[in-house]
């Protein structure tokens, strides 16, 4: 039972991990992007539809990544080049992204004969859980490590690479410098605009992948409106919980995943709470995390200092 719970937590935490990693890439480059929900929604829509039509996981993932990137491009263009307010742009991207996701979803439903959209079999097999003979059947370790679908491994891998990128590469150092003090980075010869664009776009793409998980996995391959359903917002909050560190994001996501599935596993015989309470739980915990992190402030483990502030070189 407990093993099952942990493995379910990993499943539930995976979209959060994509979103969190994507948002970390934004914030490290100095951009507080509140559009995660929107970019995930765009990825959800594009990923599902590509999978539906082309029946290929590669094309679905690519489409989700590109769609997330497209959302990020709108945001990046407006905030990096046009220096628009980051908060408002991000919020608008979320409203726009969710809107377009549901709009296209309903449009496709309208044009489908049975009024349902279900992913074809080939791709369903590709995204079903791994089954490695010999490994997946090992008790405890099998389900905990070798029985996930391709998304789960991809999410963890991306977060790991992201961690190495920021901690151990020169480019990562340069990006961190931009997020902290773009003026200093610029004067040091770092190409601020170019690096910002790259990080924001890749981050958006990663969010898009998280969206594809929501639409393709969670509802068992059947299209439902509003597939992301607030996970993008939790991801933004998780960045704070993970204190802007990709490695910590992995654990954070799985912990939050656990909260979101608690209602199916918590023994009702001990305390019986209404379902709505469990549904609230991730959001209450997130709010608590926000409060706690704001109470204990340290010099390190903080949001990049210039996050939310646009940079114009000739500003006087």
């Amino acid at each position: 039972m407990f093993v099952k719970f942990l493995s379910a937590a990993v499943f539930a935490g995976t979209p959060l991990l994509f979103g969190t990693t994507g948002e970390i890439m934004n914030e490290k480059a100095g951009h507080l992007n509140l559009g995660v929900e929107g970019m995930m929604a765009m990825g959800a829509c594009a990923g599902f539809m590509a999978g539906f039509f082309y029946d290929s996981i590669i094309i679905a993932l690519l489409a989700a990544f590109l769609a997330g990137m497209l959302g990020a491009l709108i945001y990046a263009l407006l905030t990096i080049t046009f220096m628009a307010n980051q908060n408002v742009t991000g919020l608008t991207l979320s409203i726009f992204g969710v809107g377009i996701c549901n709009f296209v979803g309903e449009f496709m439903l309208l044009n489908s004969p049975s009024n349902t959209l279900k992913l074809p079999e080939h791709i369903t097999a590709q995204i079903s859980n791994l089954n490695i003979p010999g490994l997946s059947t090992v008790p405890v370790f099998g389900p905990l490590l070798f029985q996930y679908n391709i998304f789960v491994y991809l999410a963890a891998l991306i977060a790991l690479i992201c961690g190495i990128y920021y901690n151990h590469t020169k480019t990562g150092l340069n990006v961190r410098a931009i997020g902290e003090n773009p003026g200093a980075a610029d004067a040091a010869g770092i190409k601020v605009t170019k690096l910002k664009y790259i990080n924001l776009l890749v981050g958006g793409g990663i969010c898009g992948l998280g969206g594809a998980y929501c639409s393709m996995i969670i509802n068992g391959g059947v299209w439902m409106n509003n597939p992301v359903n607030g996970q993008g917002w939790i991801a933004v909050a998780l960045v704070i919980f993970a204190s802007w560190k990709p490695y910590r994001a992995i654990f954070g996501s799985f912990i939050f995943g656990a909260f979101s599935i608690l209602k199916y596993y918590f023994p009702k015989t001990i305390i019986s709470l209404p379902n709505a309470f469990y549904d609230m739980l991730p959001f209450i915990i997130t709010a608590l995390v926000l409060v706690i992190t704001s109470i204990r402030k340290s010099k390190e483990n903080q949001q990049p200092a210039s996050c939310g502030v646009n940079y114009y070189r000739e500003e006087r």
């Binding site: 902290e180 980075a185 010869g189 770092i190």
Partner: peptide
């Protein structure tokens, strides 16, 4: 090379990271 009146340094970085950032070569 310009040394600005208002220093252009990243506060949370070490001296070394400030010197190295933006230069060529492996980190």
């Amino acid at each position: 090379g310009m040394i600005h009146q208002h220093f252009r340094l990243v506060e949370v970085f070490s001296a070394m990271d400030n010197i190295l950032m933006g230069t060529r070569g492996r980190y």
